[in-house]
Design a protein around this nucleic acid. Structure first.
Lengths: 237, 237
DNA sequence: CGGTTAATTGATGTGGGTCAAAAGCAGTGG
DNA sequence: CCACTGCTTTTGACCCACATCAATTAACCG
């Protein structure tokens, strides 16, 4: 869990988006230390600041983080949760600054790669990279638009249920789930900032979920007791 | 304003996204009738239905439309407004079905192009198409995320002010604006569905904007009386 | 064991929803 | 030219989901 660990400890580089776009390191030099390196961010610390220019593209290798937007007056909106294997943002592939910030929920390990290198890797094989890039972009747009619908149309209960179901699916793609217990390192304040509510109200809703036997979130674990009911509460998919 | 009009009546094909990605028709055959054609949709009619598969990619050539998502129970969320020159969605470049629907606000004219043709056009020149595609994707993500922030963080007033400012910028890119009067073919219900409010409440807010001398929306025209105040009301940029 | 941060619970306030009626304003057609 | 219809906007009265404020408890930690 310290910096400068080799890529071998970073099991997600060959899955999903990164695998398809960046390719496996079979081709080219297998000593990648010249154009990529790793670093670590403590839980609760910011990993990337809004408007900050950077020559790199980042992939989350270990831990949880989130992208967010902050208004001058301090209000904060969480845009997306980052899990291992996720690019911080596709924007960084072709832009050098972003409009959001990234914060670590747990201790995280990040791989930074030179944008120029990644670009030329992509250009070397556009026939596979381009569709994969477009697919990934379309998928991201779809999830963002579902969030918009959730915030615009749904009640507090429905929003929280949607968030749970969405994250459950993503977590299950990463980890083996036993006894319907999902690792879930979000504070109630984070949930609130993601779904546009107050922490107090999130607490109340979670309370009712508990006493209705739907789900129990405590100590960083989400235990799903009645998934049917949870799905019934979420009008979007 | 009838179907089968040639592309020459469609002035937006060579600007912005479409110009960069699709290129001008200098190269290749200049008879494009075999792989693209035009059609017209009346105001208020749907131009594309959610989940419907299509071999085409669509560009709005004339008029206003919007993309939206509808829940089984009828609630509707507007995701994005389409102006002349806009692709219905980047998703359609590499997918044959979409998760949203499109509806015409005014009578519209649409150009449909075979996805396969567009793809090979792109592949013929990946060095320009790819960055442009990525840029456009990044830009869209940024605006969607601002919408999320608006819905999650902002009051009714702030949301409407943000929507106005956003659309004003886009309209000004298309039309010459005189006397701060913007063409604005949205019903109050549409505004409501875009910012997550009720039509009644939108009416009230517009009323206060009017009596406070900020803006006056009537008869399809938005007249901006005090843009500074409008900007002050919108916390996101 | 005190000190800090997170979660719970209660009391009260309010922004925006809901319901309903009325008024404006095309069309449409006799 | 006027009555009829359907749609949009406006306005008023009332309600409720969620926010705000504040106090208590629980968990954690050096």
């Amino acid at each position: 869990m310290n910096s400068a660990s080799p890529c071998a400890t970073c099991p997600k580089h060959d899955s999903g988006f990164c695998g398809a776009i960046l390719g496996n390191s079979q081709t080219g030099s297998n000593d990648s230390s010249d154009w990529q390196n790793h670093f670590v961010v403590a839980a609760g610390r910011q990993a990337l600041a809004s408007q900050q220019a950077t020559p790199d593209v980042y992939v989350l290798c270990h831990g949880w983080a989130f992208r967010f937007l902050q208004l001058p007056d301090g209000r904060r909106q969480i845009l997306h949760f980052l899990l291992p294997g996720d690019l911080f943002s596709i924007s960084l592939l072709f832009r050098d600054r972003v409009h959001f910030s990234v914060k670590a929920l747990t201790p995280i390990q990040v791989s930074a790669m030179k944008r120029t290198e990644v670009q030329s890797k992509i250009m070397r094989n556009p026939a596979t990279a381009l569709p994969s890039l477009a697919q990934s972009c379309a998928g991201q747009t779809e999830t963002l638009e579902k969030v918009i619908a959730a915030l615009g149309l749904c009640s507090a209960e429905e929003r929280i249920a949607s968030l749970f179901l969405y994250l459950m699916k993503r977590i299950a793609d990463q980890t083996v789930i036993r006894e319907n217990r999902y690792p879930f390192p979000l504070r109630q304040q984070d949930i609130a900032d993601a779904v546009g509510l107050t922490a107090v109200h999130v607490s109340r809703i979670l309370g009712t979920f508990r006493e209705r036997g739907i789900a129990d979130l405590s100590n960083g674990v989400l235990e799903v007791l009645n998934i049917r009911e949870l799905q019934r509460l979420s009008p979007l998919n």
